[in-house]
């Protein structure tokens, strides 16, 4: 009798999980694992691949032919990331707060306009900004003269010192809509009673924001930061669209994505190397993994969550 009381195995759950799981395994898990495997192989004399252990990684990190390019790309990538952390997310937060002001008119129009670039293709964004900033056809120079800063105009995308920062700012402009939307949504979730209570308690708007609203949206900001980190270390398209795979001038805009592309697929007369490319991809994966782990262990745990 006892036996019949046991619930049958929930086959239907497995059935519904299966399609998604299969797609995830085939198109995400398998390529990832195979990339990790391939990074331990090298070109063999007979034209095939042979197991070489950690040799690819040793070359990549110690042989100056590769390591100079690698460290340069990593440094640039961190710069690219910090530009986003310092500008994109604070600006996104500010825009979200402005959007949630109760007296704001044309709210939906602003929201749509600010979010619009995010939906455009990176190739179009790259093309538009190259035109705007072009010293020949662009409107940036005249605009700068119009506000009295004409002498400060330069071909920012072409100079070693400014190219990466300019590309970073373009990317910030494009993607600022994402933190804005996410934070805006969580601001809307804050019940009016809590805000009303703080007003009754005599808090001014700034105090209401810093002591009531900000702690409530911190988990969202933390999530936005993780998304920014992962997206920036996987970035590739904008640099490739604007500067090409050689990420000039003098590799000043080379990030992990473009380094991987050149290594794996080759470029012009350079032959691609799938195994070395896999090693670069593996390092990218490890960097992102480490970043996310540090974040989850150190930051995420200390954030208080409030049941609303």
């Amino acid at each position: 009798m006892k036996h019949s009381e046991r619930r049958p195995f929930p086959w239907h759950i497995l059935f519904f999980l299966l399609p998604g799981l299969a797609i995830y395994l085939v198109f995400s898990v398998y390529p990832l694992l195979d990339t990790l495997r391939m990074s331990f192989y090298g070109d063999a004399a007979d034209g095939g691949h042979a197991f070489v252990g950690l040799r690819n990684f040793v070359t990549l990190l110690t042989d100056s032919t590769w390591s100079d390019a690698f460290w340069n790309a990593l440094k640039n990538n961190f710069e690219f990331f910090f530009i986003h952390m310092l500008l994109q997310n604070p600006i996104g937060l500010l825009l979200a707060v402005l959007l949630s002001l109760p007296k704001l008119r044309l709210r939906n129009t602003y929201r749509t306009l600010i979010f619009m670039p995010t939906m455009l293709s990176v190739v179009i964004i790259g093309f538009i900004w190259q035109l705007i900033l072009s010293p020949i056809w662009g409107i940036a120079e005249n605009f700068m003269y119009g506000i009295g800063l004409g002498n400060h105009f330069d071909s920012w995308l072409g100079k070693e010192g400014t190219a990466l920062i300019t590309l970073g700012l373009i990317s910030v402009w494009q993607f600022v809509g994402i933190p804005m939307m996410l934070i805006y949504a969580s601001l809307l979730n804050i019940p009016d009673e809590i805000v009303d209570a703080s007003v009754v308690d005599g808090a001014n708007p700034l105090q209401t924001f810093f002591y009531v609203k900000l702690p409530l949206i911190l988990p969202t900001i933390a999530m936005v930061s993780i998304l920014t980190f992962v997206a920036n270390f996987n970035a590739f398209e904008l640099i490739y669209a604007v500067k090409g795979a050689l990420a000039g001038p003098n590799f000043s805009t080379d990030i992990m994505g473009t380094l991987f592309y050149r290594t794996f697929f080759g470029f012009q007369l350079q032959q691609g190397s799938p195994t070395m490319g896999a090693a670069v991809a593996t390092l990218m994966f490890l960097i992102i993994l480490a970043g996310v782990m540090v974040f989850l262990l150190v930051v995420q745990r200390r954030i208080n969550r409030f049941q609303l």
């Binding site: 190259q130 072009s134 010293p135 020949i136 056809w137 071909s155 995308l157 100079k159």
Partner: peptide, 12 residues
Amino acid sequence: LRRGFESLKYAD
């Protein structure tokens, strides 16, 4: 070369 040649592309 023209001023700003550093960001001039082939098509430009």
